[in-house]
């Protein structure tokens, strides 16, 4: 009798687990749809003509107008030349790629160097330096933007990429991440061994430490690139002359979306799609590293 009861209980138990499994899966599918549908609509409508979109904005079937929409971006007659004035795909990609690429390289290289200096060497202000970096980690550049703008104006660095790229050298959060990584997977004996073999300090850093820190570099490089590519606030403050040849991609998207008259919806959708395309491609290629990397910089509970 007891045996039968137990078996029935077990059966109920496995069935309830199966049901729960299905419920959870279905809810996750629904969330997936909510996460992806807005992006899908953008892609679909980027391929459609303005007149079609107005007739029926919500469809899941792509149209065949994408090439015409591309042409309108450069057409002096489309939207009274406003697209040509506000958006240039080549400049946008070139500038954003240059700014984000340079900032990424500087950020990982110098964060690596700072973390290396703080882990490998012993010096008087080491503890103070470490404390400062940890303490300022959460302070965003945004709160100093007024002072930064006035400062850059006074030394003639507005309308330059320098204040968009060089500050990447001082990235406290990246240093914090590198410090944690070095503590767990960079044995200091290696530095000693290199010294005995006659390697200079910088050579040890570049030829021995950097290759060993590659995994940490990869994760941080991805995040630095995405953050810089997406940055709108700083470029919009510091690039004041409104020169299309200097604007970054988010600035162009903002300019297009702020257009008032004779807008072509298809072209607007295309602009948004083109601005997110590079990061989405990068993300899909490297998603494994990214998903794993998100939590690494965070506190371990």
């Amino acid at each position: 009798m007891a045996y039968v009861n137990e078996r029935r209980e077990l059966k109920d138990y496995t069935r309830s687990i199966k049901i729960q499994q299905v419920i959870r899966f279905v809810i996750c599918i629904i969330i997936t749809i909510i996460a992806l549908l807005p992006i899908y609509f953008i892609v679909v409508n980027a391929t459609r003509a303005h007149s079609d979109i107005i007739k029926n904005p919500a469809t899941l079937i792509p149209g065949g107008n994408i090439i015409k929409n591309f042409q309108k971006l450069n057409d002096p007659n489309a939207a009274a030349g406003m697209y040509q004035l506000n958006f240039n795909l080549f400049y946008g990609y070139r500038n954003s790629l240059f700014v984000s690429g340079s900032a990424t390289i500087l950020s990982v290289l110098f964060s690596g160097a700072t973390a290396y200096g703080l882990s490998v060497y012993d010096f008087k202000f080491k503890k103070a330096a470490r404390t400062i970096i940890l303490a300022v980690m959460m302070i965003p550049t945004q709160v100093v933007s007024v002072g930064l703008l006035r400062f850059m104006m006074s030394i003639g660095l507005t309308n330059s990429y320098i204040p968009l790229i060089v500050p990447a050298i001082a990235a406290p959060a990246t240093v914090f991440f590198m410090l944690q990584y070095m503590q767990s997977s960079f044995p200091l004996e290696i530095v000693e061994a290199a010294r005995i073999d006659g390697s200079g300090e910088f050579r040890t850093f570049f030829q021995i430490a950097l290759p060993m820190l590659k995994p940490a570099f990869a994760v941080q490089a991805i995040f630095a690139f995405v953050t810089n590519w997406n940055n709108f606030y700083m470029p919009s403050i510091l690039l004041t002359n409104n020169d299309i040849k200097m604007k970054t991609m988010p600035m162009m998207v903002q300019a297009v979306l702020a257009m008032q008259k004779s807008v072509d919806n298809g072209v607007n959708y295309l602009v948004v799609m083109m601005s997110i395309l590079p990061v989405v491609i990068v993300y899909l290629c490297l998603s494994k590293f990214i998903v794993r990397g998100v939590a690494l910089g965070a506190v371990k509970g």
Binding site: I39, N230, I276, Y283
Partner: peptide
Amino acid sequence: LPNIITAV
């Protein structure tokens, strides 16, 4: 995915 897309 939505987190990596440009906020603008």
